Computed example of a mutant assay.
Amino acid sequence: MVSIILQVICSFLVWLSLYSGFWCWNKHRTLEWSCRMITLMHGLIVTFLSGYIALIDGPWPLTHAGHPNTAHQVRLMCLTLGYFLFDLSWCIYFKSEGSLMLSHHMLSICGTAFVLMLGKSATEVNAVLFVSESTNPLLQVRWFLRDMGHYHNFLGDLVDSLFVTLFLGLRIIGGAWIIHSVMTSPKTIWMIKVSPGGKQ
């Protein structure tokens, strides 16, 4: 458990340092611009890593829900938990989000921390991260295009089309598939069965 706590603290400090770096290098931009750069980086990194873990490294989330956490899953959960803590802190400090988004952040933090403490069910949380974070980079690119005044053209339409395609394919269809496997898994405890639907 000490190792997990240290990994989460290191992750938080890395995201905070990257944010500070972006802010120092881009002082002509808003603070939200720097925060969204971190969100974009997190989305890309987590999509790649969670996809690799779910689809290549294993175990397969549709058949191994509720199984013990692997070392790769734990590292990814720690990386993500550090980011969630950074993002929640930023939102609270700058009062940028309402109570609904803050509640979503808290649910994500509690669910991820619970899986790390429990020592199992990272397989399904990893799959949920993959389907939910895969569309996040496109949302950030959309924001950057709007911020720079380049949204209302072919590039903006392309980003929107890719977002809708991924949202329907991964979040709706893939998410429903994951939820079904979690709900029917005899090894997944009831608290985990409640959280994936909330995270979707």
Rank of each mutant, 00 (worst) to 15 (best):
F84R: 02
H42I: 05
H64M: 07
T80M: 07
F22N: 03
L18K: 06
D87A: 03
Y52G: 13
S50H: 04
C35I: 07
H64D: 11
S89Q: 12
L49C: 08
K27W: 10
M37P: 06
I56M: 00
K27L: 15
Q73S: 02
R36G: 07
S108N: 06
H72P: 08
L81Q: 04
I45P: 02
W60E: 14
L40D: 00
H72L: 08
P61V: 06
L55E: 07
R36L: 10
V46K: 03
W60M: 11
C78N: 09
L102N: 15
I109W: 04
P61L: 10
S96N: 09
P61A: 13
S34G: 09
G98R: 05
H42R: 06
S108A: 14
V74A: 14
I53F: 02
P59Y: 02
H64G: 08
G82K: 00
L76F: 12
H104Q: 15
I38W: 12
L31R: 10
F86E: 04
P68A: 01
I92E: 15
I45W: 09
F84T: 09
I92K: 15
L85Q: 03
F86N: 14
I45E: 06
S34V: 12
C78P: 00
C24A: 10
W60Y: 15
I92F: 11
Y93E: 14
L88C: 10
G82S: 12
F48E: 13
Y93V: 06
S103T: 13
Y52P: 05
E97M: 03
L44W: 02
C78W: 00
L107H: 02
Y83M: 13
L85P: 01
Q73A: 05
G51T: 12
L79R: 00
S96D: 15
L102H: 08
G82V: 02
L18Q: 10
Y52I: 05
G43I: 05
Y19N: 12
